[in-house]
Amino acid sequence: MKLQNEMNLSFESRSSNEAFARCAVAAFLTQLDPTISELNDIKTAVSEAVTNCVVHAYKDTIGKVYINVKIEENSLIVIKIRDTGCGIENIKKAMEPLFTTAPSDERAGLGFAVMESFTDKLSVRSKIGKGTTVTFQKRLSRRVGNG
């Protein structure tokens, strides 16, 4: 796939950056003239992934969250959200809807289910003590006048 554009972002895992992260990604993608619904789907998935970094990866500490967004041919968007936090012990379990290790924080346990539902493809790689990388893809509808 031919890369057409790319951006990188890093910021501290503070909850106040959750809105910044999803809005920054959305701002980068406006050049593709996405529909409001497509943009909303991506913002939602980014928000879930970044929240996981804040709540789980860097549970009682502050670390760096890295976002890489690639725009590939035919409006394919690939977003990687990476942390160097605690890692996920059991990815399969973590991805089960309603499973959460943070019920006291009122986490609904839907993060991965939402990412899965709101994007076309999701993959999660994680290593205990090293961190987690969540990658998701979404192809935008081709619109008249869009290249």
């Binding site: 913002k43 939602t44 928000s47 879930e48 929240t51 924080d105 609904a108 839907l110």
Partner: peptide, 13 residues
């Protein structure tokens, strides 16, 4: 205007 799964947690709580 926007809600992620935190909104679901808010309702359930």
């Amino acid at each position: 205007k926007f809600m992620d799964s935190s909104g679901i947690g808010l309702i359930m709580g």
